[in-house]
Design a protein around this nucleic acid. Structure first.
Lengths: 204, 204
DNA sequence: ACCTGAACACCGTTCAAGT
DNA sequence: ACCTGAACACCGTTCAAGT
């Protein structure tokens, strides 16, 4: 008598995310997730091809919480895009340890693709098409991915800055001075400021 | 009689890079590098604290080839920055497998910091200071890091696009259309186009 | 001082076996 | 059909020992 499948993909992803939130990304392994679920390690392979697919499930779980319905069409298009970017950033910020996973599995996550689709919708309504639309999406994706990583890897305004402040000032005059100044710039201002530059560059 | 140190940091880094170029980043291990050098695995720990430091040496080796002398001051500042960005991109493109390493060790690599110092120099000569300079550097770093990764991880114009073209067009109308269009956009145009947006946003 | 080899505590995954 | 445990081929790193 065939036993029913006892696990859903969602349960699997939640267990993996629980491990990551508790022990960090380094704590994630097939064995640790299996233990979290009270099953044998090999049972996971009933539900998932390999570790990579498990990671993708985690990314989809987190990015799946992002509301991809574009905000009201009465707002200027650059404000609408900023809202979409903020939602993505906030979702990742709730689980900063998954940043490397989002990067690695970006183009295979359905939730991530849905977000891009939504951004493209706004761009299209704003009149972007052809090469310009490709470059706009690519530019936004590049910035968002890079900036989110910087933010959780020692941004110019965070702990990384302290190390930079202690560099030899004669070899790094601008870096040390900028780092000192950067300590007073909030992470929000840095992230959104860079985004504003990009959106301004996109403006007609 | 104490034997002389038989290895330099540079030799160690070259051996590791040779392993990466031949077997990919997944092939990099303390054991494989030791074998490449014809030594025991543990001998490496005479020269390096741990694997992380070995990775940093590789990043410094590659980024160390970047010419960080800013191009002629007679050129417009945005052209000067573009040249610096292109040099960094080209150096990484020669060893695409190290992309994850450059990201992970970005703020601990002296060569990387030297590049940032050079960019800051140009920005300063162009009249940027205070918060504006912090945001400008942060925005450039974010874009460069993210865009370089996209480029070597299935960019909108590369293999990733093929997968996207095959998405259900009713759920992803803009993505499928944009991806089809993106196939004709070169990687150079995508990367430099996004950078141009950012630089344009920086302009007064 | 420099280098080695065994050992420890981990990995992801294959395979044969149990219910 | 679903789950298990042993085993394989790897990791990074500690430690005691050799020259």
């Amino acid at each position: 008598m065939p036993r029913p499948r006892s696990l859903s993909h969602a349960q699997l992803a939640s267990a993996a995310l629980a491990v990551i939130d508790r022990d960090g990304l380094a704590g994630l392994s097939m064995r640790s997730v299996a233990k979290e679920l009270g099953m044998s390690t090999m049972a996971l392979y009933r539900y998932v091809d390999d570790r990579e697919e498990l990671e993708r499930l985690v990314v989809d779980l987190v990015l799946g919480t992002v509301d991809t319905v574009p905000p009201g069409p009465e707002a200027p298009w650059h404000d609408r895009i900023e809202v979409l970017v903020r939602r993505l950033r906030d979702a990742v910020a709730a689980h900063p340890e998954i940043v490397p996973l989002t990067v690695a599995h970006r183009h295979r996550s359905l939730a991530g693709l849905r977000w891009s689709e939504s951004v493209l919708g706004v761009l299209t309504e704003a009149g972007f098409d052809g090469d310009r639309r490709v470059v706009a999406l690519r530019g936004l994706l590049g910035y968002v991915i890079g900036a989110i990583q910087l933010e959780h890897l020692g941004p110019l305004s965070g702990e990384g800055t302290v190390a930079i402040t202690e560099l030899p000032p004669d070899a790094f005059p601008h870096m040390t001075e900028t780092a000192r100044h950067a300590r007073k710039v909030s992470a929000d201002r840095e992230f959104l400021g860079g985004l504003a530059l990009l959106l301004r560059g996109l403006g007609t």
